[in-house]
């Protein structure tokens, strides 16, 4: 099973500049573990030490914001497309 992952510019230092990588996992959490083995440090930019998604990173499975489909426990299927994006936010 394979899932394609779109990597935002700010995280491409972990993927040797690649914008599209592939990985595998039954859930998003497993996918990030798998990706971290090949792209060291990537997982820590997305997942906190407590095991949650960082506040200002958006992750989507296909078109779904994963916060609405189980977060890191979201299920993955072969051929899914995962997109990681900066939330783009700020405040005074």
């Amino acid at each position: 099973m394979s899932v394609e992952v779109r990597v935002p510019t700010i995280l491409r230092s972990h993927t040797g500049g690649q914008k599209l990588v592939s990985g595998s996992g039954e859930t998003l959490a497993e996918l990030f573990d798998d990706l971290d083995a090949a792209h060291s440090g990537l997982k820590a930019r997305i997942v906190t030490d407590e095991g949650n998604l960082h506040r200002f990173v958006n992750v989507y499975v296909n078109d779904e914001d994963v916060r609405f489909i189980g977060g890191l426990e979201a299920k993955l299927s072969d051929g899914d497309s995962v997109t990681i994006l900066p939330a783009v936010a700020g405040g005074m």
């Binding site: 510019t9 700010i10 200002f56 900066p86 939330a87 783009v88 700020g90 405040g91 005074m92």
Partner: peptide, 24 residues
């Protein structure tokens, strides 16, 4: 983005968020 009551420069949180997970 706009600031509606303060000057047109990045705030502390603008800078912190953009540095950690922004658009370099």
């Amino acid at each position: 983005h706009s600031h509606t009551a303060t000057e047109a420069r990045p705030s502390r949180s603008d800078t912190a968020i953009a540095s950690e997970m922004g658009l370099p």
